[in-house]
């Protein structure tokens, strides 16, 4: 019962906050402007990439991270101790409920501002609609963006707990996330960078459920092996094996693996949440 009670309380608090309301309005307006500007000339898959770009690249990551930082830092920590954690609530229950509330709010704003225009541009007869998007592909594309948002919320949560002060956490996150594309490029993990994912969305959106019947569905040993090699290369600064088509030079993005992306973002998300829980359970309030 405490978990559900805190989740409801936090969702209500978030909905009451000016930040979330302004963000929702701004995200809807931006989606409207993008849709209207590209209506006549941009193919559907590319238009979808345009619609998710504000969440992947700029500017909404700032809002997402600030929302993540908020529950365990600054002046909120006092009311947290006085009002909630002095009651029979386990700290992990509080953390789980507030993390989930933020994830739900972020995903709600993301889907509310992108899903209706995507459905509209996919179903409407437009002069520019020459490509075919698949429901599975669009879902996979939106899922990838949701994973990135999940990591952003979790990073905000982690730095909010570690640094306590809202402003310090925001500054550190800005310095960490803003150059993320260059950082991932340096470690030869460029296929995980938000810019690469944004560029891969048109390809993903057109991908059917199963391209060829002989391809196995789900995660395979090859995916794990490839992911492991990527991380080993990144950590040991090895040069990648020569490939016929380097990732960035091929604008087709056909080799983007959903499972690799899921693991590449999922594992750091889990680590961030676990570290937050560990720090918060040992922290004095």
């Amino acid at each position: 019962m405490p978990f559900v009670a805190i989740l409801r309380h936090d969702l209500r608090g978030l909905w009451d906050s000016r930040l979330v309301r302004l963000w929702l309005v701004a995200a809807l307006l931006l989606a409207l402007v993008i849709t209207a500007a590209h209506w006549g000339q941009t193919p559907t898959a590319i238009l979808i990439a345009w619609l998710v770009a504000p969440f992947l690249v700029f500017p909404w990551f700032l809002v997402v991270m600030v929302l993540g930082i908020n529950p365990v830092s600054g002046s909120r920590a006092d009311s947290l101790a006085d009002g909630l954690l002095s009651r029979p609530v386990a700290r992990h229950e509080y953390l789980a409920a507030t993390w989930l509330a933020r994830v739900l709010v972020v995903l709600a704003v993301f889907l509310t501002s992108t899903l209706p225009p995507i459905v509209l541009v996919a179903l409407a007869e437009r002069p520019a609609a020459t490509d075919t998007v698949a429901p599975y592909g669009v879902t996979a594309g939106l899922g990838v963006v949701a994973l990135v948002l999940l990591l952003q919320v979790s990073l905000g949560f982690m730095f909010g707990t570690l640094l306590r002060r809202l402003l310090s956490a925001v500054v550190v996150l800005l310095f960490l996330w803003y150059p993320i594309n260059y950082t991932l490029d340096f470690f030869r993990l460029e296929q995980f960078s938000p810019v690469s994912l944004c560029r891969a969305v048109p390809e993903l959106a057109q991908r059917p459920w199963r391209e060829r019947d002989d391809l196995p569905s789900g995660v395979t040993g090859d995916d794990f092996e490839e992911l492991g090699q990527l991380f080993v290369r990144a950590l040991t600064f090895q040069k990648p094996k020569p490939q016929p088509k380097p990732f960035f030079e091929s604008d087709e993005f056909r080799d983007v693996s959903l499972w690799q992306v899921a693991l590449g973002y999922g594992v750091p998300t889990l680590l961030a949440v676990a570290l937050t829980a560990f720090c918060f359970s040992r922290r004095d309030l």
């Binding site: 019962m1 405490p2 559900v4 009670a5 805190i6 309380h9 209500r12 608090g13 009451d16 006092d78 009311s79 101790a81 006085d82 009002g83 909630l84 002095s86 009651r87 029979p88 609530v89």
Partner: peptide, 27 residues
Amino acid sequence: GYLPTNPKLPGNLRPTEYLDLLGQLYR
């Protein structure tokens, strides 16, 4: 039952909502 000095309580709630929330926390 804890009463802090000049308690900082969730300002966005009304008294009944706050007490109801605490009642839920106490199961």
